[in-house]
Amino acid sequence: MSLSRTPFLRGIYDALPLLGGYIPVAISFGLISTQSGFDVLETILISIFIYAGASQFLFVAMMSAGTPLWLVIAMTLLINARHVVYAPNIAIYLPQSRWWPWLMHGLTDQIFALSLTSLPRMPENARMGWYTGAALLAWLSWIFGTALGAVAGEELTARWPLLGEVMPFALPALFLVLIAPLFTSRIWIITLGATTILAFLLKLFGYLNAAIPLAAVSGAIIYYLIQRQDEQNAK
């Protein structure tokens, strides 16, 4: 895209593919939340402030089932615990600004993946504008989708059932585009391939919440084993 666009607009442009994944899932969340007994305002507030897909579904399910409060909070935070490794990974690319701590609210799985691959390729003075544009678009689309689902989710899913089925493919497509350039050497081909397959199998067998951290940790172990093997062979 043209470099003459401001970094903020460039961030919005780069985050556009996320909408295909965010809006249908947010509509589902809005619908499920209102069906679970939350009103429209409560549903939107959950999306504004917690802003973490999977944990929001669990949050409304547990709250509506009357689960003890401490358990609702503990499970919500446990599911979001994978987020602790995101900010340190991109910190080296972030120029000094007192706004970063607040902007971290927008650091979802997808914004992290997008940032990790995009930030190193842009000048330092463009990074904050780019991140703000991308994260803001993603956050607003999540809130918009939630509101839409809470107000008119039933009509939407009845009228366009295929839309909700097709658009979420934007997420695997986006992740594929983000990891494809990383297959640069034998060690990364093996490690990234093994991590993808392991996460896929864990999700397939029902371990959705453990799949991402467990696969990534296993991938890291594989990386170090290969690295050690290569070092021994070199001696």
């Binding site: 990790l116 991590t195 864990l202 991938g219």
Partner: peptide
Amino acid sequence: LSVFGPLMIAAMFGVSL
């Protein structure tokens, strides 16, 4: 950490497939 970042993306890709 530099190893972990790309692996998190690969794991997200695997799950989303």
